[in-house]
Design a protein around this nucleic acid. Sequence first.
DNA 1: GATGGTTTTGACAATCATTATCAATAACAC
DNA 2: GTGTTATTGATAATGATTGTCAAAACCATC
Lengths: 140, 140
Amino acid sequence: MMKRNTWQREAVREALDTTEGFISAQALHSALHASGSPIGLATVYRALGDLASSGEADSLQSPDGEALYRACSTAGHHHHLICRNCGLTVEIEATEVEAWAKGIAAEHGFTEAAHVVDVFGLCADCTRPAATTESPDRAG
Amino acid sequence: MMKRNTWQREAVREALDTTEGFISAQALHSALHASGSPIGLATVYRALGDLASSGEADSLQSPDGEALYRACSTAGHHHHLICRNCGLTVEIEATEVEAWAKGIAAEHGFTEAAHVVDVFGLCADCTRPAATTESPDRAG
DNA sequence: GATGGTTTTGACAATCATTATCAATAACAC
DNA sequence: GTGTTATTGATAATGATTGTCAAAACCATC
Ligand SMILES: [Zn+2]
Ligand SMILES: [Zn+2]
Ligand SMILES: [Zn+2]
Ligand SMILES: [Zn+2]
């Protein structure tokens, strides 16, 4: 079962690359359609799933259970600092946490420890006194 | 709009208390029904939502986007070490992680930082060579 | 360039968790 | 007890994700 290259997969990869922050499969599909692509929704789901499992994309569950994806720039294992207002995402290393997680697991007799570590907050821009009434757009 | 006490809410709280590890709204509803309670599904969802937002219960999103709940024994903010096989959960404090999260956020100009930090693994019991063919039950 | 076995696609149906409805019911202050 | 009002629950609605499967696209080979 050899993988084949299709413009659809390439389109998804590219769309994801040009997207700032995390985006849902639905949103990415809309974006592609908006830019004229006739790609199907199911295909976007499949492509994103593949990218995620091959490590080319990061994925996480939004608080309301939606799966979000993001082009992954750092090769190895890493985590994210995400602006909950504009979606801006920073890839971060968490050496301390890696060690801590491993330690706490061992300490309790757990093996094969994996972990979920994400930090959400307001980026510098979004922090500027919301007093200015205007707030940055949410998800492009 | 004053909150009222109903046997339904109490039932949910109790069911959650007697449950080891995290459980979904659907599963908790089934469990209640199984034990003879005629409580409605929507009510279970509402009760769990309330418990979670009042801090009496912890909640997290399972990898497949399901919301899971657990009676919270520790009052303050804390994290979890969860057995991905049997659901056994250990509440853990992580002073280091708190500091790290706060630091990394500030370092990047982020404010109002919150974080999601959970460790998944196999507990000591579940680690015993799966060679014994038999494995502990999943979710009660 | 044509051919053929396979993989991939996509329109649409099917799932499945969660939320919205809204009339009937139960809490509780008086 | 009575009235006001929050709560319940059967059911419909929503919305994301997955399954289906014939048609289309890939690509190694002729
Ligand atoms: Zn922002
Ligand atoms: Zn890590
Ligand atoms: Zn276990
Ligand atoms: Zn914490």
